[in-house]
């Protein structure tokens, strides 16, 4: 009996060694260990074995079975490993083939610039608010110290709807709306669309965007204005950016200034970008005129404040080196996709 079992085992091991596919291994398993397999047959013939030998024979059968199973399992794993290796070898891809992108859309450069600006001021505790595009003469002019007959009214080439209703020429009117709410202190920026009767060309558009800023509190100084806007410029154009304040005139601020930043292209040495001056004009600003405070119901003896206005398109054109303003309103997808 033992000899027979050894024979089965020997033959099985030989067959296993000679098999290189899982199918063949399965066949061997069925042929030897299956319901009608050789070893199963041996078990079936146990009744012919004398009872006292049965435990011994049973043990032999089990040992033989375990051995064959172990070798079979080893062989199966080896074969599967070989198969998987072979498959992976055949699955080599050209990783330089083009990517499959979920085509994500692109933000308008104006919005990218605006969100940058919002991020900076929100971080400094400013609230972002809005005012109407179609505005009354009072909010666009009069409450900003630009009374009837003021030359600034002509300078800005206003679009009128009626004598009293117009398309706002500046976002500065939102200053007044905000001050009239009577909630102090104020730290706000107000982005928005503005309109001026300029013909369309590479540097002009009858409709563009500004971001207005306003801070009203006790003891606000021109030094605070300088510090805040210098911080803004560094955040927007880089840590190395220097700022320069030049006196200017706006009817609703006094003193007033224009702020230049050191050219972020050449670092201030002078290049084509900054027309050789090393500086680029960025925004207008100033201390809120006492009369403007007064008109909006704020006591100019108790409160002071500063205001500023940034041209959004100007920032976008400069920052992203866009050479023609018309591109911003054409919506050519090849343009938009670059942002």
């Amino acid at each position: 009996m033992k000899a027979k079992l050894d024979q089965i085992k020997e033959r099985a091991l030989q067959q296993i060694a000679g098999s290189d596919t899982t199918e063949k291994l399965n066949e061997i398993r069925v042929a030897i260990l299956g319901k009608k397999g050789e070893l199963t047959n041996v078990l079936k013939s146990m009744k012919e074995v004398p009872p006292e030998e049965r435990p011994q024979v049973g043990q032999w059968v089990n040992e033989t079975r375990q051995e064959i199973e172990r070798v079979l399992e080893e062989a199966r794993m080896k074969t599967e490993r070989a198969l998987r290796d072979a498959r992976m070898k055949s699955e080599v891809i050209d990783v330089t083939l083009p990517a499959k992108k979920a085509e994500i859309g692109h933000r308008h450069p104006n919005t990218i610039a605006l969100e940058e600006i919002e991020r900076i001021f929100v971080g400094m505790g400013y609230e972002v608010v809005e005012g109407p595009d179609v505005e009354t003469d009072y909010y666009n002019f009069e409450a900003l110290n630009i009374p009837a007959d003021h030359p600034a009214k002509d300078e800005q080439d206003t679009f009128y709807v009626t004598e009293n209703i117009l398309l706002r020429t500046q976002t500065s009117g939102t200053q007044v709306h905000e001050m009239e709410k009577g909630r102090l202190p104020i730290r706000m920026i107000a982005p928005g669309r503005v309109f001026r009767a300029d013909e369309v060309d590479a540097t002009h558009s009858p409709s563009f965007h500004q971001v207005e800023g306003l801070v009203i509190d006790k003891h606000i100084t021109f030094a605070d204005l300088k510090g805040t806007l210098a911080e803004f410029a560094r955040e927007l154009f880089g840590e190395e950016t220097k700022v320069k304040f030049r006196p200017h005139h706006f009817p609703f601020t006094e003193p007033s200034a224009e702020m230049d930043v050191s050219c972020f292209k050449c670092g201030g040495k002078g290049c084509r970008f900054c027309k050789g001056s090393g500086w680029i004009e960025i925004l207008g600003c100033g201390m809120v005129h006492p009369h403007v405070l007064e008109m909006s119901g704020i006591d100019p003896d108790a409160y002071t404040g500063f205001a500023f206005g940034v041209g959004l398109e100007r920032i976008a054109l400069l920052k992203y080196e866009i050479d023609d303003m018309r591109l911003l309103y054409e919506n050519d997808i090849r343009f938009l996709k670059q942002f």
Binding site: G125, D217, F222, K226
Partner: peptide, 30 residues
């Protein structure tokens, strides 16, 4: 304020210090 501007521009805008507003904190938000 007009006199302040005269002082500022001849004293020099560049000589005015740069500070940040202090006072009551406000919440920045959209």
């Amino acid at each position: 304020a007009d006199l302040a501007e005269e002082v500022a521009r001849f004293h020099g805008y560049d000589k005015i210090p740069t500070t940040l507003p202090n006072g009551e904190a406000t919440t920045g938000k959209l």
